[in-house]
Write a protein that binds this DNA or RNA. Structure first.
Lengths: 142, 142
DNA sequence: ATTATTACTTGCAAAATGCAAGTAGAATGT
DNA sequence: ACATTCTACTTGCATTTTGCAAGTAATAAT
C-alpha cells in the first residue's frame, strides 16, 4: 500500500500544496536523477549515491505517476522493465530545481564545482539544454 | 532532543544538500510564515492553517537557527518571547519559494487567486517588495 | 531446463511525527 | 503580595513513516 496521504485540505496555499508533493526526503532525488542524469529505470534510480531503498522508490514512483508528474512505458526490449519519464508537469519543476541549486551554492556550498559554475553563469542556457535533452529522449521513445 | 540528523555525507549534490535542510513537511511552512506573512513569534507560527505541533515547531526553529537560516532576539517588551527572523540565507530562499508557487499555480492549482496573479505578472517586483518588507522589519528591530 | 535479472513486495525494527498534557518563568490582574 | 494567565517550550506515548534485508513472480539469458 502507499504510505502517502492524498491531498485533502481545501484551498491550501501553493507552498503547502507543493509540500504534499515534494515535501519529503526522496521525491526530488528521483526527479533529479530523471531530469539531470537522464535515468529512466528503477534499477538506475537505485544506483543514486543517496541509496534509496526499493520500497520507498516504488512508493514514490507510484505517487509521482498518480500525480501526473511522471509517467512510464514498457521497455521495448525487456518486459520486466518500465521506462519512467517526466511529464510536462515534471519538466516544469526544472526552474524550482535550478533555484534550489543556486541557493545552496550561494549560501551553503562548500566545494566549488565547474558544473555549478556553468549553471550559475548560463542559467537560461542550462535550463534550455536540459529541456532539450529530455525532449529528444521523448521523441525517440514515446 | 532534536529529531533531525546532522549533515554528514561528504561532497553531496546541491539538491541532496538542500533536502537535508528543507526536505520535510514543515520547514518551508515556517519559512513561508516568516517570509510572506511577517510572523516572528512561536505563537504566531502555531496559528498557521496547517496546525504544526509545538514539538515539531520547536525542533525546526532550533534546526533552522543552528543552520543559520533564521536567528532570533529577545522580545523587547516581553522576556517570555523570542522574535525569530530570516537571515540573509533565509531571505535567499525567496527565489525558490516563488518558483515553487509558480510551478504549483501553472500545473497543479485549482482555485485562481488574485495574489498569485500578482506574483505571476510582477515576479521581480513581488520579490523586491517582499525583501523590502523583511529589511524594514530588521532595521526597526535588530 | 536452469540460472540470472528485474521490478517490486513483505516483515519487522527504528526513527519521525502528532497529540495531549505538563512545566517553568515571566506578565498581568486584584 | 498573591493568584492567575501567558508563553515557549518539553515530555510521554501512540501512530505513521522509513530503512533494511529477505523474499517473489515474471521475464531474459545461457
Amino acid at each position: 500500500m502507499n504510505t502517502y496521504k492524498s491531498h485533502v485540505e481545501k484551498s491550501e496555499c501553493p507552498i503547502a500544496h507543493a509540500l504534499d508533493v515534494i515535501g519529503d526526503r526522496w521525491t526530488l532525488i528521483i526527479i533529479r536523477e530523471m531530469m539531470f542524469m537522464g535515468k529512466h529505470e528503477f534499477g538506475e534510480f537505485l544506483e543514486a549515491p543517496e541509496k534509496i531503498s526499493t520500497n520507498i522508490l516504488a512508493d514514490r514512483l507510484k505517487k509521482l505517476s498518480s500525480l501526473g508528474i511522471i509517467d512510464f512505458i514498457e521497455h521495448p526490449q525487456n518486459k520486466t522493465k518500465k521506462l519512467y519519464y517526466l511529464t510536462d508537469i515534471g519538466v516544469g519543476l526544472i526552474d524550482v530545481m535550478v533555484e534550489v541549486i543556486l541557493w545552496v551554492d550561494k549560501y551553503l556550498s562548500t566545494a566549488p564545482s565547474p558544473i555549478i559554475e556553468n549553471i550559475k553563469n548560463h542559467t537560461p542556457e542550462f535550463i534550455e539544454k536540459t529541456k532539450k535533452n529530455i525532449q529528444s529522449w521523448n521523441e525517440k521513445n514515446l
